[in-house]
Simulated scan of single mutants.
Amino acid sequence: MLNVREWGTGPKTAVLVHGILSDSGCWWRVGPDLASRGYRVVAVDLPGHGRSAPMPDATVERMAQELRLAVPAEVDLAVAHSMGSFIAGAALAPSRFVYVDAPTGAGHRMPAEAWWGTYEKAKSRRTLEALTDKHPGWDVFDREAEAEAAKLFDVETAVALLVASGGRDYTPTRPGLVIRAEGSRFVPEETPGAVTIRGADHHVWYGHHDEFMAAVCEFEEQKNSPANPVDGGEQ
């Protein structure tokens, strides 16, 4: 069973899914904000991340199954970051889906050894000192959350997932709101309906929490069909 963090006891349910190298701690501010809007918020640690056990034979489907078992059956709002988005997309059928700088198109095919080198290096460089130098605009708790997540990150799990999903089309199949970083490497600027957060990097909400939540809340409050994304724009 996956480790989870929860905020709130409201009648609506929100599920938050992190990306590779992070864990549920990345939502330390988003979770309470959604709870204040009437949600019971459940944030997961995916396998090999945070306090959840490694999964050396990880695939999207295996991770999706673990996610389904860890969260409520009925989900009103799902917010998923980066590669967590296609795991959430395979596991959940929320009323509203928010994709945060989520990959689109075919994934890279690389041998396991190359992925190992990439993520061993990324893990070793994700210290509090390095994050402070690289991201001075982040809140101190943002940097602490990412540094702690890196310590707990299991490289073997990530490598298995990436090798198994190499060449897979990451484009979201469920309609929803796309929130992208300015100059995103993963989401083209011309993506229909996408909201761009100016000045944000891949972890869009870090250092831009208010703009991020404004986009999420505007989408959440829409009275039209949940299948229709909000009009695109810049924040």
Rank of each mutant, 00 (worst) to 15 (best):
K121C: 08
A80Q: 12
A53W: 02
Y119A: 13
V60K: 07
G50K: 07
A149N: 02
D33I: 13
F86R: 15
G117W: 04
D57V: 11
E129M: 09
P72A: 14
D139C: 05
V140F: 03
A73T: 15
G105N: 01
L128N: 10
V75P: 04
K123E: 01
D133C: 11
A102H: 09
A90Q: 10
D33C: 09
L128M: 15
M110D: 09
A53Q: 08
V100E: 09
M63D: 02
E148G: 08
V159F: 13
T132D: 05
D76E: 10
S85K: 02
Y119N: 10
A58V: 14
K121I: 07
A130M: 10
A35D: 12
G89F: 08
S36R: 12
S36Y: 03
A93E: 15
A145Y: 00
H81D: 02
G117Y: 03
V155L: 00
A43Y: 08
D139M: 10
E66F: 13
P32L: 09
L69S: 15
S95P: 00
E129A: 13
A150M: 00
A90G: 01
A149E: 03
V60M: 13
W116P: 04
A91E: 02
V140K: 14
A150F: 01
M110L: 15
H135D: 08
R51D: 13
R37T: 03
T59C: 05
M55G: 02
P54W: 05
A64E: 11
Y99L: 15
P111D: 03
V30T: 09
V75G: 10
R29M: 07
Y119L: 12
T118D: 12
A114L: 01
D154R: 02
A102L: 12
S82Q: 10
D57A: 14
R68K: 15
F97S: 00
L128T: 12
L34I: 12
E156G: 04
A78W: 05
E74G: 09
L67K: 01
R40Y: 03
G137C: 06
E66P: 13
V155F: 01
V155A: 00
A147N: 09
R29Q: 15
E61Y: 12
L128A: 13
A43G: 14
R51G: 08
V159P: 03
A145L: 01
A88C: 08
A80E: 13
T127L: 02
V60G: 05
G31R: 04
E156I: 00
L67V: 02
H108Y: 07
M83Y: 12
T157Q: 01
L131A: 07
T59D: 05
V159Y: 03
R125L: 14
P54M: 06
R37F: 00
A90T: 01
V140I: 06
L46F: 07
L67S: 03
P94Y: 06
K121W: 09
R143E: 01
A149V: 07
A73K: 14
E61D: 15
D142M: 02
A106T: 14
A149R: 04
T157M: 02
P103M: 01
M55P: 03
D33P: 03
D45S: 11
Y119Q: 13
F141D: 06
V41K: 05
L131K: 05
D45V: 12
G38H: 04
F153Y: 14
R109Y: 04
Y119E: 09
A78Q: 05
A147T: 11
L92G: 11
V79L: 15
G89Q: 04
A160K: 12
A160Q: 11
D45A: 05
